[in-house]
Amino acid sequence: MLTLANLRMNDPGVRAKVDGALKPLGIEYRGTVRVKHLLRVLVEDIGIPALRAKVRRPLGGLKIGAFYGCHLLRPSDEMGWESGEEPHAFEDLLDALGAEPVAYRGRVMCCGFPIQFVKPETASRIAGRQIADAQDHGAHAMATPCPLCHISLDAYQNEASRAVGRPLAMPVFHLPQVVGLALGASPEELGLARHLVPTEPALARISAPART
């Protein structure tokens, strides 16, 4: 979203409007702040090899469905990064952490959150489909770089389950949490207890021994 806001600053009309609002405060914004998502920083600036080398507790045995979130990817011509429909950065990252990424269609779909306040049953049906898709492809957990996707997939998972008419029990990690786990942080440090869907069953899947 901030990337798109920067792009809109190229429009002289938008720029004049922003100038008009900021000038009285003595502030100027030219749209030059570089916006980069954490996932992209991890993959591009730190890099997969460097990250792999830092892993203390490989997530071996844990099958994770990456869930990208729309705004990280699309519109892809404006985001100028991954394919909007066939990205692989998140899976590359999960692989570096020792986890097993799961291939499923829902990984690039919408989580339903944007219409949670418009039509909750539709929003939950959308969330439920993606969770069920991950589950059907063998995921033990999902992970998302988007906090709103997290709300939809985790906090509203019981609603999602009802909307698609099947039981769902899918722990959903935030991106920093899976990285933190692999780098050796404790569940307490990562706030895993604050999730609505318990994460313990996923943690129990991790089979690889911790490295020292």
Binding site: R74, V108, C110, P114, I115
Partner: peptide, 22 residues
């Protein structure tokens, strides 16, 4: 109208750059 998710999957799929989501 308000059921659009702003996911931009339509804009990715459109072969004519109509950019429906926008």
């Amino acid at each position: 109208l308000w059921l659009c998710l702003r996911c931009h999957l339509c804009t990715e799929a459109c072969p004519k750059d109509v950019r429906p989501s926008e």
